[in-house]
């Protein structure tokens, strides 16, 4: 999923303080799963903002909506009837969702209420970790199902570097050494000999190296 974290309150307050009628838009997808911008977080943020501005003697109206998917034009269209009553939109979706709202409603200022972080997975209750860098040419098949691009601090395709200690990365003891994980998996799979295949320099064109990316599916495109 795409993970996100709510921005600090002061920053959110700073961005919306010139506006009196705010449309606060959550998303029912990834940000709901990572508890950053779903219906529940929308409600909490709305209350906090109302309380803050009321205390300042400058009350705001906040309309709460949580879309099924904020990155999808079909659902973003549902905001149309509410836009007339809004001075600004505060989005709790990832950057994709916030941009879709901005693209559709050109006359409304849109502010992000979350920081979009990374593509990751849940490690345990309340902990998410990066798993994929979206390089566009998946290497998991040759790295035993552990991505060194997303999970090695130096994104080494031929690691581990000299900073691997007891399975941990030198950059932070909370980071597992991706190459230790790869090696452990290769051993478990009885595929140790794969380690010595030199992985050649990567073609980054499928990643950000090729500029902003699109997928065009001729069979589906209208």
């Amino acid at each position: 999923m795409i993970t996100a974290e709510r921005k600090p309150m002061e920053e959110i307050i700073g961005s919306v303080s010139p506006y009196r009628r705010i449309l606060l838009v959550g998303c029912n997808e990834c940000v709901t799963v990572c508890a950053a911008g779903g219906r529940k977080e929308v409600g909490l943020l709305a209350s906090a903002l109302k309380m803050h501005f009321a205390k300042e003697g400058n009350p705001v109206e906040i309309e709460e909506v949580t879309l099924e998917r904020q990155c999808d034009p079909e659902y973003v269209e549902e905001l149309l009837p509410r836009m007339d009553q809004a001075d600004a939109v505060l989005s709790m979706a990832c950057g994709c969702g916030a941009q879709e709202v901005a693209r559709r409603y050109k006359e409304k200022p849109v502010f992000p209420a979350v920081n979009t972080r990374f593509m990751g997975a849940s490690e345990r209750q309340g902990v998410w970790a990066e798993r994929c860098a979206g390089c566009g040419n998946c290497v998991l098949g040759i790295t035993a199902g552990v991505c060194p691009i997303a999970r090695c601090s130096k994104q080494l395709l031929n690691g581990p570097c000299g900073g691997s200690t007891s399975g941990k990365c030198e950059v932070d003891p909370d980071i597992d050494c991706a190459w230790q994980l790869i090696w452990d998996r290769l051993k478990a799979l009885g595929m140790q000999e794969r380690y010595e295949d030199n992985i050649p320099a990567k073609d980054w064109r499928t990643g950000r190296g090729g500029g902003p990316r699109r997928i065009v599916r001729e069979d589906l495109a209208s």
């Binding site: 570097c161 000299g162 007891s166 230790q180 090696w183 380690y195 010595e196």
Partner: peptide, 18 residues
């Protein structure tokens, strides 16, 4: 460079081979 002292030790010769 090569670091014979980093972990996992069993990969240190193999990485030199690469």
């Amino acid at each position: 460079a090569a670091n014979p002292f980093a972990d996992p030790f069993e990969l240190r010769v193999a990485r030199l081979a690469k």
